[in-house]
């Protein structure tokens, strides 16, 4: 199976400081991977680098998306290839209403309009449409709004940054069902699931979303990967400290 994402030997700096080093990551088409790690380990930086935020300067290595070199493309061009992201703390844009951005997206993808209307109804987001994007919303409401925007264009590869953190228990189920829709099969390939990379600290994600692999990132490096259930069980039991020790042992062999 070919890879939708292939990162090789990637080094990234922000303001001259190295924040990601020697990243190697492959996500085959149709797979959803998880990315976990302690706070400040580089999880969000990796997603922002893949999306093409110019503050994240790639100093070495490569990122291929469906065989294409992403490093030559700006954010818009990467989005046009079918990459989507739901950020953890997206900016509020004064005066720009959620409905303005939704209409822009649905004008380009009119076939999703009916589904989005239903989604707005189900997620009780009608009252948010006339609000500024991400303005005055709770953590959970921002997540819903971000997922709704992604569903309006159905990317083939979706990156989610802690999609269920700060979400109340009543909204969790709805949110997870929206996430599963993002990873539902592609329209043209009914047996091929869409791919993604999800940052999470939550065991619940593993229970509700089928993830194929988990990668652990510590201090800007991917130090381990494995079966999502087993990795999460280990981390929950022994914390990331055990990963550091394990990685050091492996390094010393």
């Amino acid at each position: 199976m070919s890879n939708i994402l292939e990162i090789k030997d990637l080094f990234v700096e922000v303001d001259g400081k190295v924040i990601l080093r020697n990243i190697n990551l492959e996500i085959p088409k149709g797979e959803v991977h998880l990315l976990i790690g302690p706070n400040g380990s580089g999880k969000t930086s990796l997603l922002m680098t893949i999306m093409g935020y110019p503050q994240y300067k790639v100093t070495k290595g490569s990122i291929l998306f469906d065989g294409k070199n992403l490093l030559k493309l700006n954010i818009t061009e990467r989005a046009a290839l079918g990459i989507g992201i739901a950020e953890q703390r997206p900016p509020t844009i004064s005066g720009v209403k959620l409905k303005m951005l939704l209409s822009y997206l649905l004008d380009k993808n009119p076939k999703w309009k009916e589904e989005i209307d239903k989604e707005i109804e189900n997620s009780k987001m009608k009252s948010f449409l006339n609000r500024d994007i991400n303005g005055g919303l709770s953590g959970g409401e921002i997540k819903k709004s971000e997922l709704l925007l992604l569903l309006s264009r159905q990317p083939i590869f979706t990156m989610l940054d802690e999609p269920d953190s700060g979400v109340d228990i009543d909204s969790l189920e709805l949110l997870r069902s929206m996430i599963n829709k993002l990873f539902s099969p592609e329209e043209e390939h009914p047996v091929k699931r869409r791919s993604g990379l999800i940052i999470t600290h939550s065991e619940g994600i593993i229970e509700s979303i089928h993830a194929d692999k988990t990668h652990i990132i510590i201090n800007g490096e991917i130090v381990c990967d494995g079966n999502p259930q087993l990795v999460m069980k280990q981390v929950v039991t022994s914390g990331f400290e055990s990963c550091i020790k394990c990685n050091n042992l492996q390094g010393s062999v």
Binding site: N74, I75, T76, A79, P91, I93
Partner: peptide, 14 residues
């Protein structure tokens, strides 16, 4: 710039 970049992630040109 962060606002422009955010909208670009949704497929908009700058």
């Amino acid at each position: 710039p962060s606002e422009v970049q955010y909208l670009m992630t949704h497929g908009m040109k700058e």
